[in-house]
Amino acid sequence: MIVVLVEKGPDGLAVEVSRETVTFARSLSEAGGGVAIDAVVVGEVSDALREQLAAYGVRDVHRLGGEAYDSFAGAAWAAGIESVLAATTTVVVMAAGTPRGNEVLAHVAARRGVEMAANVLTFGGLSPFVVTRQVVGGQALEEMRLGNRPAIFTVAGHAVEAAPAATPGAATLVEHAPDVAAADLIARVVSSEEPEPDLSGDLKSAKVVVGAGRGAGSAEGFADLVELTELVGGSMGVSRVVTSLGWRPHHEQVGQTGSRISPDLYIPCGISGAIQHWAGCSSAKAILAINTDADAPMVTKATYAVIGDLHEVVPAINAEIRRRRGE
């Protein structure tokens, strides 16, 4: 059996990365002769969630309930997964490569004394069981052996596209109220406040994002970029060096350690396209890069490009937009 830790969103349904992980589990199941896929869910399980998981081919939904699960504790979640493992014959434990997924499975792996692979993209052979995962921030791939059972790994976001199963599962609810040891509840969330107003919200949902990198030159070098952002009705998104240098606020950062954006058009200006940044903008439907270096990764990966200094190109674009609007 394959056990997948499924995380819920604010709507109580499985988040996309968890649905991707169940989809990944199905391809593993098919390769392994059709072993069953069970989900582990912490807290409430609505009928809508069960229906959703059934559509994804899940056999049983193991619900972890009780006071131990009122607030997050990585060790308590791991203890819950262990109680599911104790009741089943499980060969693989999976979760999405989210902060929770990586944390909880690392606990499970440490408790069971087996290895864990984080951010897996694909699996190779089943015997030996080999996975390929993202390392160096996605700039390199590692083939890794998972020799012990259960094999424990998390799945990188967008490794597969989430898709319902051809044959739905029963998604039978199985209740677990494990006796969680006091030691597993020491490191527990004691308060979780509404997040600070998410200033990056506009950035994440923007249809157009104007990006700026080191090429902006200084905090003062953003005037034309801000104007372009306003003219296209978009949001500003910057590379890490820009926030590190204090030119723009952190909530505007796009990349592996910033926001991940998926606009219709991304206009990176003076951004070379280091993988750290690319990780945050690769979902853009179209990219129009402005860069002095025709060989910069951002230019070669772009849909459109202008070769030139952003301080010459951007004002000219702004002027052209204003001219066509008859301003």
Binding site: L141, E142, R145, K301, Y304, V306, I307
Partner: peptide, 22 residues
């Protein structure tokens, strides 16, 4: 437990160059 590292396959460039400078 590393078998080996590899670099991701290069993505062929389909960029359309719109021009140079202003």
């Amino acid at each position: 437990n590393r078998v080996k590292l590899a670099l991701p396959p290069p993505v062929p460039s389909n960029v359309q160059i719109l021009g140079k400078g202003a």
